[in-house]
Each structure stands twice: as C-alpha cells, then as structure tokens.
Simulated scan of single mutants.
Amino acid sequence: MNDSTKTSERPVKPKPRARSFLIALVLLVLTFWAAVRVSFDLSTFWEVWSNPIWSKFWPIPWDWVFTKENTFDPLIETLQIAVASTLLGCLVALPVSFAMSSLTTPNKVVYFISKTIMNLVRAVPDLFWAKLLVTAIGIGAFAGAWSLSIFSLAVMVKLFSETVDAADPRPLEAARSSGARHLPAVKTGVFPTVFPSYVAYSLYIFELNIRASVVLGLVGAGGVGRVIETQRQFFRFDRILGLLIIIFGIVWVIEQISVSLRKRLV
C-alpha cells in the first residue's frame, strides 16, 4: 500500500535557482538598453495604421496585374532564377559537404580549408552577393541566379554536412575494411543512407530561393522583384498589393508540394 502511494505521488517541482533570476534580469536589462538605443516606441504599433499611405493599396487594378508583360513574364523569370540557382548550388554542395564532414573528409587539411571557406561564404548575406554581382555583371536575372547559387551552396553545405556527420559509420568502416578506396567507400557506405535527406534539403532550398529571388529583384537582380521596386518608386502600392497576392498564392502552392514530397522522402 505504501509502495503504491509513493509511486502515485507527483514529482516535486524544482525551485528556481538564483542564477536563473540573474540571467533573466540581465536579459531584461539588455533588452531595455537595446530598445532605448534604437529609439523603440510602442506607440508606433498603432500610429502606423493612421498613415495615409494605406489608402494607396486599394482598389487593386486587376486589369494591370493580370497581364503577361507586367506579372507573368517576371514571375516566370523568378522561377527560372530559383530553379537554376537551386540546381547549381546543390550540385556543387554535394562534394563540398562530404569534404566538410569529419566522417568522410579525405584528410584534415581538406576539412579545415573547406570549412573555413564555407564559413566565410555563409557569413555574407544573399542580398550583398546580389548587389555585388549586379555591380560586376549588370542588372538582370543572370546576377540574381549567381547570387542565389552561392546562397544555395552555403545553406546546403551547412545542412547536408551535418547530416553526413550523423550517418551510421559502420557501412563506411565495412567498405574500408574490405579494401575499398576512399571515394568508392563513401559512395557505397554513406551516400545511399543520406541521399533522401539531400533531396529533401534541395526541395527546401528551392522554396527559400523562390522567396529570396523576389527580394533580390529589389536590387536589380531580375524577376518580379524588379517590377515591385519600379512600382514602389511611382507609389503604385495598389499594383504592388496585387503582385504580392499572386506571389503568395504561387509560393503557397510550391511549399505544399515541397512539404508533401519531403515527407515521403524522409
């Protein structure tokens, strides 16, 4: 009877430590200090809605939006940028990821060099790459595709190299013990187990590139973002709202398809 009573008792809730209160206090002070430094004001949350700019978002000129030259051609260009950059970035990321993994790297020198270079590439935002390449190459989709290829490479290498690190090392050890060289051992011992994750990550990066290609168009890197930036300069926010609604619908459909495919793969 006593044993059953003891097992049915709820565990004692641990008391909060003084260190937890100290950490919370420090975070609160830092948050308040940062808000003061950036002139943060809560009143802007409701004052912004009284801005007369909101009247320019309506009514939407659907006759202008549903035209091939204004919307659909730039949207196709945006999809082309996303597809090309995803394929190029993810293909280059495949060997780089294996070089960056401690499980499959050929030696420590290759591991260190590849890790250092990709950390530097990942530290630069995609918007900066787009601005830099637009300046170097020129305005258009080509610069946008190159900048998103670099972005895709950086993201895929980070995700996929960690997946390779977490792979089961026993098939690789068995391949090496049978006398296989490094590349054939990696190909037969590791690649088949991580390939579904590679495809899933590629679909996820394609989703990211669809969204990013819209943003990169604002700096002249092609796609529908360039149309949005042009309309913004003329304060045609009604046209921008129509474009955003169509973009939201397309991105939502692509995301649902991608999520469904990723669930079947992983």
Rank of each mutant, 00 (worst) to 15 (best):
G144Q: 08
F206G: 06
I240T: 09
V110K: 00
I246R: 03
I250P: 00
P95H: 04
S260W: 11
W64A: 13
W62E: 05
I117P: 04
V227I: 09
A35F: 14
G189Q: 02
V259H: 01
N70P: 00
V36M: 07
D3S: 12
A167F: 11
L75T: 05
N70M: 11
P61H: 11
W62P: 12
L265W: 08
V12K: 14
W58N: 12
A185L: 05
F72H: 05
I245M: 12
R19L: 11
G242F: 03
S152T: 13
K131Q: 08
S178P: 00
P171T: 02
P95S: 07
A123K: 05
S97V: 08
V194W: 11
W46Y: 13
C90T: 14
E9I: 04
Q231D: 06
R170P: 03
I250V: 15
L27N: 06
L216K: 11
A154V: 03
D126E: 14
I76S: 06
W252C: 09
F128N: 02
P11L: 15
V96E: 01
S202K: 03
P59Y: 14
V134W: 11
V29Q: 01
I113A: 06
A84S: 14
Y204S: 07
A18F: 02
A166E: 09
P95Q: 05
R239E: 10
S20F: 08
G138D: 11
I205T: 10
L244P: 03
F21Q: 00
S4T: 10
R264P: 03
F237Y: 15
T104F: 08
A180T: 03
D3M: 12
A24C: 03
E207D: 15
E9Y: 00
G144C: 12
A34V: 09
S4M: 13
L218H: 03
